[in-house]
Design a protein around this nucleic acid. Sequence first.
DNA 1: GAAAAACGTGGTCATTTGACCATAATCAGC
DNA 2: GCTGATTATGGTCAAATGACCACGTTTTTC
Lengths: 192, 192
Amino acid sequence: MHPEFEKYLKENTNLTPDDIHHISSKAVGKTLRRNELLLQSGNVCKQKVFIAKGLLRTYSIDANGNEHILQFAPEHSWTLDVESYDKEIPAETNMGAVEPTEVLLWHKDDFNNLLSEVPELNKLSQQIISRNIYYSRQRMLTTLSATPEEKYDDFIQRFPKLLTRLPLRMIASYLGISIKTLTRIRHNQLQR
Amino acid sequence: MHPEFEKYLKENTNLTPDDIHHISSKAVGKTLRRNELLLQSGNVCKQKVFIAKGLLRTYSIDANGNEHILQFAPEHSWTLDVESYDKEIPAETNMGAVEPTEVLLWHKDDFNNLLSEVPELNKLSQQIISRNIYYSRQRMLTTLSATPEEKYDDFIQRFPKLLTRLPLRMIASYLGISIKTLTRIRHNQLQR
DNA sequence: GAAAAACGTGGTCATTTGACCATAATCAGC
DNA sequence: GCTGATTATGGTCAAATGACCACGTTTTTC
């Protein structure tokens, strides 16, 4: 049904084939073109999103029109605007495709049913939440303590596969530094 | 038994007096002097912490000896090093008292038992986790997008009561700006 | 495959920021 | 209440950073 997703579950959980099909059967697939939005600021995030292929980003736009990227979600990861999803309030962020992307979507009600029907899915879900918490903390610490160059190096270490798929300005936006600073760093690193 | 804590639960949950006493009975109280550490980097965080009175901070020290503050936890809030607590691995952060502080501590096993025995406590716990997630996101966004002055103003708005209890250098450390920048901002704001 | 859009880099310059130091005021602890 | 430690502020200066602009290259898109 959704082969990439089933492969992901097979590799990352102890779910039975039956459960996998059950979960999979509640999902709706969607294809996004480059730059297409999956969630627009002001709308409520009503779905859990699994990225089967491609790359999404979550970002917000400030008063000066500058984008600030909160998250990248590549294939085999999940994303959503938690607060909007939980509280059913308008999102303050946008979610868009960095490159052509295929996602699976579950409506909140369906997913909640699955969570109570399938304990192993619940466990996976908790794991993902935990990992996000740990990483957010780490990211905050890096943001507070590292120099721009250290942030960039950390990014490369952590997301080596994203490096070539993202325009530099998005990396800069994710790291909270200007693109000028980033090209300067790259320039200096080439010298060595 | 622990009047501040019981007051907190009475005001913030629907727990029955019996449950409240039950939860309270598993807690151990501890008094911290100013600057005393509750958790030291390298040790495992084995307890959930409720602050009955006073103010804790969670911070890490970087290679240059600079402190970076991840969290302030004033009275009637909870804290812990999540990753260390969950995985039972050494913490990379310190937790110390900013001012004389009284805390309640629950050992992990005891707290887990309480969570399964008392559904309403579980609900509270989930709420607290959710709020932390929402706030972390917001903080990251502010950190990425705001000017130092905006960060400071945001801090005042969000934690008006902490302003007078914290040395400026800790606010600067929390905001990720130098104390020099902070005094400059304050100087400018006085002029107006 | 051609036109248009997006991208990475570099130059210049003004501004912001931080490091270091000194000083006066305030606070903590006995 | 006194003493020593901590704190907030300000000066100076160097370095880092960002805004703006231009240009050549690469990538999209139709």
